[in-house]
């Protein structure tokens, strides 16, 4: 049974007087443990699709099913609950909470889940060790480099034990060496924990690492390649 199912999703945006048909009748299913990339030129709808899978945005038509939950049948707070427990996010511009230190950022998600303080701290530190940031527990995001911030973001996305991690252009703001380091970390996580990773990207390196490559063009799936 696939972990993510997208069934005939349609999405139209209104921008001023212009209607933008961002997604047209998308059908997609992703198996558990995948390391999949959604690629395509800018404006092709890849971020929109990722947002749909993350439950951040709802389709006009069709349905998204993640881990057996039908989004069309859920309200906002149920969606929030699902995001909290089953979905991890990594954003292009890191988007850590600026007033929290690295370890606190990782802890924050567990705090929302209601994990106890001591356990939270232990797991957060272990997670940071795993992404190679043992030295930087107590630094604020502004004191970390872009690559380090993105590793904290990955730790934050993984620590809540999600079924899937959605990463929106995670390497776009990083140099290629740092980007590759990050990808390696994510690949390792994918292998070790069997967490599904779904990327939106136009970075060639990410596409190379991916086991599956979905190519979007003008809101439609142009190609779907398993490697």
């Amino acid at each position: 049974m696939p972990i993510v199912e997208v069934n005939g999703v349609d999405k139209v945006y209104q921008q001023g007087d212009i209607e933008i048909h961002a997604l047209k009748d998308i059908h997609l299913s992703i198996a558990p443990g995948s390391f999949a990339a959604i690629a395509g030129p800018s404006g092709s709808g890849k971020t929109t699709l990722l947002n749909m899978i993350g439950g951040l945005d709802l389709p006009d038509h069709g349905d998204v099913i993640v881990d057996g939950c039908h989004f069309s049948e859920m309200n906002q707070s149920q969606l929030a609950e699902l995001r909290l427990n089953r979905i991890g996010f990594v954003f292009q511009s890191y988007n850590l909470i600026p007033v929290l230190s690295a370890v606190e950022n990782v802890e924050y998600v567990m705090l929302l889940q209601g994990v106890e303080k001591v356990e939270r701290r232990e797991r957060a530190m272990a997670m940071l060790d795993e992404v190679g940031l043992s030295e930087k527990y107590h630094n604020r995001p502004s004191e970390l480099s872009g690559g380090q911030q993105q590793r904290v973001a990955v730790a934050r996305a993984i620590v809540s034990n999600p079924a899937i991690v959605l990463a929106d252009e995670p390497t776009a703001n990083l140099d290629s060496k740092t980007g590759e380091g990050l990808l390696k970390i994510m690949a390792a996580m994918n292998e070790k924990r069997n967490v599904t990773f779904i990327f939106s990207t136009h970075d060639k390196m990410v596409m190379d690492y991916a086991h599956r490559l979905v190519l979007l063009r003008d809101g439609m799936i142009a190609d779907d390649e398993f490697k």
């Binding site: 951040l56 995001r83 427990n85 954003f91 924050y108």
Partner: peptide, 16 residues
Amino acid sequence: TREFGVMMAIGTTPKR
């Protein structure tokens, strides 16, 4: 606002 968006995305409820 952006920061709030991210926090909501990772599961923070509006109430919180």
